[in-house]
Amino acid sequence: MSNSPGLALAGQPGVNDDIGEETRLKLYHSQVVIREAEQRAFDLFLQNLVKGTSHLSLGQEAIAAGFGVAMQKGDLTFATYRGHAHTLARGVPVEKMLGELMQRDNGLMRGKGGSMHLASEEHGVMGSYAIIGAHLPIACGAALRAQYRGDKDVSVCFFGDGTTNIGAFHEALNFAAIWKLPVVFVCENNLYMEYTPISEVTAVEHPAADRASAYGLPRIVIDGNDADVVYREAQKAFAKARAGDGPSLIECMTYRHSGHSRADPAKYRPEGELERWKEKDPIKVYRARLKQFGISDEAVKKIDAEVRKMVDEATEACKAAPEPSTDILFTDVYADGGWAWRN
């Protein structure tokens, strides 16, 4: 990376700025990994190789990537059932993610969790939660531990716009605020609560940000399709949390290119809406950004090719992987490793 043309422009105004080339390439790389892996998940679903359900983040990559790159080792991710992106953004191998979606033995949880429950504690991914709102209080608890022990990690909790209308959202915001917990709540507002426009079922225009004042927090709405914007906002929120100044609530405006889940063709969207948002596709936005900062097409293409190759290899590895052993059926119900509820 140090040989790429970006460095030659160092010193020029607006070029080697606060983010810089190295981080920008990480941001791009992370978005491309998510894009390619999610697209592959969709393709594998069409081949009936991804089982169960799946909820893709196509079009929303900049948020997971922006936060993921800003997070430090030890910071904790709490994701939703739409959590492939946030899991990958912490460095979890694509093979492990796809393996879980394909319910193979090489998956993150060897097929015991499935698409909606990705977790990789070694990467700080503390789980993907499929009951709306459940993980906001859980993230508060992890942050309470950090505060209690004097640990400097931040808990980052991602959720959709629909989550802002469930009680746990409000309980968690209040909890985090009264105890000044080092937690960052990230609302990905993709305009739709499953199949229903969020505006039709929410009393305020911005479902997260317009509620922030109820918890003494600043109103933050950002362009969630611009990884630079996301990254900068994440940095601010993390600095605040690490300084002991409490939680943040950040509403990121974005759009999912696919339906809610694999069962949803998203026919409820008005004509032209998807096309308008595709003009603001985060990958497209970021390629232009890299160009603007003098990073060569070759560097970009190299990343694209490497990621594609990696996803291809991961796909083949998953196809070749065995199904999970039935030996794991009765393991890890309890901490002793087993499932015994009686003597």
Partner: peptide, 22 residues
């Protein structure tokens, strides 16, 4: 600690604390 009347937050926070070492 005294908490607000927020049973979901109470149990959720307990879980998050337990998952991470308390």
């Amino acid at each position: 600690r005294d908490t607000p009347i927020s049973e979901q937050a109470i149990l959720g926070a307990a879980m998050g604390a337990a998952m991470t070492g308390l």
